[in-house]
Amino acid sequence: MTSMSGIRADEPARALPAASEQALVAALRRGDEAAFARLVELHTPSMLRLAGRYVRSRSVAEDVVQETWVALLEGLDRFEERATVKTWLFRVLLNIARTRAVRERRVVPMSALDGDGGDDGPTVDPARFLPPDAAGWPRHWASTPYDWRDRPELVALSREMLETVRRALEGLPERQRTVVELRDVDGLSAEEVCAVLGLSGANQRVLLHRGRARIRQAIEDVLDGPR
C-alpha cells in the first residue's frame, strides 16, 4: 500500500487532467464560449458554496463568483500555465469574498490561520483506550473498532449516511470545515488547499485530521456497532 493511494483513488472525478485544462485556457483565450461554459459548470457550485461562508446573502455570493470569473477572463493573457485554473479561481474568490466580508463588517473566518482554533484535544475519546497505567497493553484499544469494509450503508451510501456526513461537516469549526470541503468534497490537492488558503502544509494537515476525525465519529455513531 502506498501512502496516498487510498485517498487519491477515491477522490471525486471533478478535476480536469492538466492537459485538458491547458487546452481550456487556450480555448478561453480564443473566446470559445463552450469551453467557458464547461469550466463554469465544473467550478461554480463549489465557488458559490465557499463564497457563501463569507458573505451575508446568496445574491452577494453570486456577485463575488461573477467578479471572480470576470477577473479570470481579464487576467487570461497573464495567466501562468503553471497555476491551475481551479487554484487560481478559489484564491481570487477568497480575496474578493474577504474584501466583501470586511465591507459588510462580518467576522471573517480563516482570518487567523495558525493553530486549529483552540480545538487541540485528542481526536478519539480517551475512554476507547486502556489507561496509561494498564498492565499489558497501556494506551491500546480497549476494544477494537468495528470493520466498516462490508457495511452496506457505506458500500451503497444510503441517503441517511450522506445526510449524516453533510450535517457533521456543517458542524465542524470553520477552518476545519473549509479545509475538509476543499480537500474531500471539491477534490483539491493538499498543495492547492495550502495555496488557496495560505496555510502551511502542517496546519493544513492538522485541520484536515481534526475535521475528518469528527466526521468519522459521526459515521460511527450512525453505524453503531457490528452488523
Binding site: G6, I7, D10, E11, P12, R14, E33, F36, A37, V40, E41, T44, P45, S46, L48, R49, E62, V65, Q66, W69, V70, L73, P145, W148, L154, L157, M161, L162, V165, R166, L169, V180, R183, D184, V185, G187, R212, A213, I215, R216, I219, E220
Partner: peptide, 28 residues
C-alpha cells in the same frame, strides 16, 4: 475508517449549477 470517511465526503452528487447563474456568467 479514516480513508472511507474521506471517500464518503467526496461521494455526494456535485452541486447543480442553476440555470439563472449559468446564464448570468455566460452573459458576462
Amino acid at each position: 475508517q479514516m480513508r472511507r470517511t474521506a471517500a464518503v465526503l467526496g461521494a455526494g452528487d456535485p452541486l447543480p449549477l442553476e440555470p439563472p447563474m449559468r446564464d448570468r456568467l455566460l452573459t458576462a
